[in-house]
């Protein structure tokens, strides 16, 4: 499958959905966001492993951890 313009829109749609909200949510309304199934922050050791796998297997970077730089990642 080639990278196409339609594919870009599939990626852009969730980005557009993240446009900053104009409505503030009070702290007592945010309880649902503390649920274990809603957490973004994963264990740093898991991020470390995922980042190494992705950056050594793909040409792209970004979105997982910080930019790879330490170690060549060239198995």
């Amino acid at each position: 499958m080639r990278f196409s313009r339609s594919a870009r829109w599939f990626v852009l749609l969730p980005l557009l959905g993240l446009a900053p909200s104009c409505t503030s949510v009070e702290f007592y309304e945010r309880e649902a966001l503390t649920d274990v199934t809603m957490q973004f922050d994963e264990d740093p050791t898991l991020i470390h492993f995922q980042q190494k796998v992705l950056y050594s297997c793909e040409g792209a970077i970004g979105g997982v951890g910080s930019l790879a730089g330490g170690g060549c990642g060239c198995y």
Partner: peptide
Amino acid sequence: RTAVHAKVRHRLSEGRSIGLGARIYQD
């Protein structure tokens, strides 16, 4: 290298959520 990435998470009900992540990259 440039990458733009996003992720969003929505709680459907107690203990049940869906998520979506996306990234565009160019070098």
